[in-house]
Structure formats: C-alpha cells, structure tokens
C-alpha cells in the first residue's frame, strides 16, 4: 500500500519558484497559464492496511505535523492500494 502526500504552498503566499517557472513558460511560448504552484510529494510504502482508524489518523496527522509546515503549506493525503 502506498500513501501519497501532496504538499503545496498556500495559495495566498508568495511562491517565488512558481513565479520563476511561470516566467519561463511565458518565454517558451506556453500560453494560458495563470499561475504555477511548486510543491513536493512524499510517498510512503507501508505494510498492512489503514483499516484501523487510529493508524489511519496517525498517518494523516503526519502530513500536517511533519511533512508540511501548516503555516506555509497545504497537504493532501491519498492512499493507493496495490489490490484493485
């Protein structure tokens, strides 16, 4: 089982990396991009499942308390099971 943490800068904060990328996109002729946000992704490969609520909460909490800084970033946690 995999857990994906998608971490992005808060939209109302200055994102110098996103702005730099946007300038380059303009330069190379990519049109219609109104804003670029640069974040990061953390992937955990975990053993077992997340059926137990306490374990699930612990992993979700990790996204807010460790993988992101709540003052600067938003985080989304997504689970991907190996079994369909």
């Amino acid at each position: 089982m995999k857990l994906f943490y998608n971490i992005t800068p808060k939209p109302d904060l200055h994102d110098p990396q996103g702005e730099a990328l946007q300038r380059i996109l303009d330069r190379i002729g990519v049109l219609g991009v109104s804003r670029v946000h640069v974040g990061k992704m953390v992937v955990l490969e975990i053993e077992g499942d997340l059926l137990e609520a306490e374990r699930k909460e612990r992993f979700e909490e990790l996204g807010k308390t460790f993988f992101s800084n709540p003052l600067l970033e938003d985080v989304e946690c997504r689970v991907e099971s190996e079994e369909p």
């Binding site: 904060l13 200055h14 110098p16 990396q17 730099a20 800084n69 003052l71 600067l72």
Partner: peptide, 10 residues
Amino acid sequence: QGALMQNRQI
C-alpha cells in the same frame, strides 16, 4: 513563532 520561506528572489 513563525516560519522562514525561500527568499523572494529565490
């Protein structure tokens, strides 16, 4: 209290 972000000019 607070946080430090990347410099505004990167």
